[in-house]
Design a binder for these strands. Structure first.
Lengths: 231, 231, 231, 231
DNA sequence: AATGAATGAGAGTTCATTCAT
DNA sequence: TATGAATGAACTCTCATTCAT
């Protein structure tokens, strides 16, 4: 029986040594750049292995310095995590402000264009590995960083409220129909979250097969329900 | 920067010692029962702390035996996790088969009833702590148990395919309208996943405030798009 | 690093599960037979893995009963070891009394015959796996069982003294020459010990190639030095 | 039956705590020196208790660092053992090259001198505790480190072949007699192995009483058989 | 700022031994 | 006697953190 070293490391996940010293040890980097490199490395390791299983050694190696050097920038593993959460959850990471709102005087054509702009932004973000990793980390380890999460929560609520208000105005001004979607903007975003979770759980080939169809159906949904009744 | 005591244990989760000897050490249980107890305990500990931070001691204590005794039933922490995933994902996790399908000859009334049945089942499950825990664990630690996940994937795909086929038949037979929802059943389920993720991330008071409104809007969405054109 | 299950078990030695339940669980065997079976199993496991690494489970399984059953016969792992040593070191395990001695009136012919008898016995024992295992165990773990070893020591000394006395008489009576070999009988046995140790350390093919040549040279040595000068 | 306390620890060997902090914790030693200290400590512990019963804590303590520090130098207990075997077996363990060979033009006097040199080296090594420990470890735990052993095997065979060839040349050039000893050099070394094994198994007082006599007889054996017939 | 040897508190795992059945 | 679930004390190994250099 081959000796499996420890059991707290997934057999499925490749060892971090496979990507040794991604950054080739640039000495004495400006502190700010180093912090960014470290947080990039931390995002990778945390989302790959989870907070508990990620090792400071691996984060340091991926950031191109030694474990000791890492501690010159962050006082603890938790500090790295908190800082990462802070950076991740800067406004509009999960949602940007391009979701269909209601600028004055909106022709149907421009509504379709706006929907397409929204979808383009949202589904493009799904292709960004960092976005998926971030969301995964948020879901998986969020409860570990309640304060950081609190910031995200507030942000998230504010954005949704703004969008909801915009919807309401759009309906009142007649550029959008009153529908389930304008009643709860959550419904507009739900398919994107679904897609993101699928990317976390299903294999890539299946997801990349489904994504375009999901996007098309999502577009159809929005264009079926958002435009005003007549025209 | 405040120094966190040990850093690898969540500050949010209370220590397991707070609930000592939950099961009062029933000696010599039939192996089958013990396994169930252990998996129950494991679900609790894993979802509370994550796989990495959960301790075999705590799982054992919660299951009412010693750590050594635990190892008589599962050869490793990973094995516990695998078995847990196996057991959890037997009944299709995210969906049951009550989502709106198309029995022959369906009046609009019965479609509404069917929609309500679907929503009732889905949103009731959201109130089940075990469901949320399980889904959280699936998302957070899924990649750790690729084989167990593979089973879930297959299940999930099969169910979706069946539902999609049902939708197609319903459209062809005229009991449902051709819409974004019938084109991609995913869109029907997306709001529920959104709700589940909100439950994981937002505080309970906010979520319980939103949930009924989300459910109402979800219902409205389905009833706006599913029924056939005429009526 | 692939996860190796435990580290205290040699990767080179096959797991004991490979030979599961060598004896097919005969229930309620006479105590004496069971003890013998257990000691056989223990000899195998101890010599294969060493005392420390041998497991009571494996010994029990090899003996055809459960761990609990084993403890009905021996109170502890040490007790098994002690009993094994006792049994192993019954007189003349390592040496028998056929080494060349001096019966009255010994022609040179019969000396050669006696040498051959001695060699036959000694080198035949080298082919006996149990002999090699026993000697290996004696060397490897002897210090663990000082009392058992004490018995062997006494035996060993007594036998050598007898042989030495026999040699002296043979020289005095003129049937053997006074030589290094008669001065120290140890020298007569040394090549056999060498062969045994080689069997423990070198690979079988090499040893089986060397053994006949060693035996021939050993024979030549004895016949060169033991017979009286003239004739 | 007297119950032995823990049973997996030899009653004969004193606990390592009796010699606490043998090395007074020199912090930050160069890695190379530390490795040597660790291997020294490992030789002691392994040979005292056997591989299985030796504890990493004790090895670390004896080497003057903490258990964790030990693992910075060797990845596992097995790795320590392998490295130890490697180091131990570099200089040919059992034989050096001073065994009687045949330099050109060798008078009988110088042959005797050469024999004495050989015996001096061999029996001096028997007084070296490290030699006995090493040999004991090789016999007792050799099968655990097949790769390390492979190196030793090759070495051992090479040395014997060279000696054998030297013997053949010595016989052909007439400086040695053709005898059992020149036919198989093993016979020359056998008494030394016997002495070593006796040191492992018999008590010191007995062995130190026998050793000089064995050495004398060994000398006599060589001088009786090696010199050429004439004189 | 950076390095990496060293620490030390666990955590996972093993296994001799016990004991209810 | 026999079974095998259960115990608990070790033991190996890990890793966040410290600190001499």
């Amino acid at each position: 029986m081959p000796k499996l070293p420890s059991s707290s490391r997934s057999a499925a996940a490749g060892p971090a040594q496979d990507v040794p010293g991604r950054t080739p040890r640039n000495r004495r980097l400006p502190a700010h750049e180093r912090r960014e490199q470290i947080l990039d490395a931390a995002l990778h390791e945390f989302s790959e292995r989870g907070f508990g299983a990620a090792r400071m050694d691996d984060i340091a190696a991926r950031a191109g310095l030694s474990k000791g050097g890492l501690y010159a920038h962050f006082g603890s593993k938790d500090a790295v995590f908190q800082a990462l959460m802070q950076r991740m959850l800067l406004p509009s990471l999960l949602f940007d402000d391009r979701s269909p709102q209601a600028p004055a005087r909106l022709s149907r054509t421009s509504l379709a264009a706006q929907v397409d702009g929204f979808l383009e932004g949202a589904y493009a973000r799904l292709e960004d590995d960092r976005f998926i990793r971030t969301l995964h980390l948020l879901i998986a380890e969020g409860p570990r960083a309640p304060e950081a999460i609190a910031g995200w929560r507030a942000d998230h609520l504010r954005l949704l409220h703004e969008q909801q208000a915009g919807m309401r105005r759009a309906v009142e001004s007649g550029v959008m129909r009153d529908s389930a979607l304008t009643e709860m903007v959550h419904l507009i975003h739900a398919p994107i979250l679904l897609a993101a979770v699928l990317k976390m759980l299903q294999d890539d080939t299946h997801v990349s097969g489904i994504l375009p169809r999901l996007r098309a159906a999502h577009r159809r949904l929005l264009l079926e329900l958002l435009p005003p009744e007549s025209g």
